[in-house]
């Protein structure tokens, strides 16, 4: 089974294309693939508690997508504690994920 890392750098408030990427992530997860969504840059804005895009995070989790947010991007934006269920990681972790055998990485 392939692993997929989808790296979302875009802000859902700014880019309607985030919906496309979300559908793709959930579509891959629905095929029984292991999927990690790694949020970085303005992509982490959806994880701020109270954001209208928190529901998006909940939907990912329902589809068994693991949601990870880049710690630096969170700190840079003053988000001290992201929405429930979002793991905080750093680039060391991303590199380890990228190098796991059979992993496919897709940036958006």
């Amino acid at each position: 089974m392939a692993k997929h890392i989808f790296i979302e750098s875009r802000d859902p408030f700014d880019s309607a294309d985030v919906d496309y990427f979300s559908e793709l992530v959930q579509g891959i997860a629905n095929r029984g693939q292991e999927v990690i969504l790694f949020l970085v840059q303005n992509g982490v804005l959806a994880t701020r508690r109270g954001s209208k895009h928190n529901e998006r995070i909940t939907q990912f989790m329902k589809h068994k997508v693991k949601v990870v947010a880049d710690g630096f991007s969170l700190r840079e934006r003053g988000i001290s504690k992201p929405f429930d269920g979002v793991e905080v990681a750093d680039m060391d972790h991303l590199v380890k994920l990228l190098l796991e055998p059979g992993t496919k990485a897709i940036w958006h």
């Binding site: 750098s9 970085v40 840059q41 303005n42 880049d70 630096f72 750093d90 680039m91 060391d92 991303l94 590199v95 380890k96």
Partner: peptide, 16 residues
């Protein structure tokens, strides 16, 4: 911000 992120990834990979 992509440039900074790319350089952070490169740094982490080399560090490892």
């Amino acid at each position: 911000a992509n440039s900074t992120t790319a350089l952070r990834i490169i740094h982490a990979a080399l560090q490892q």
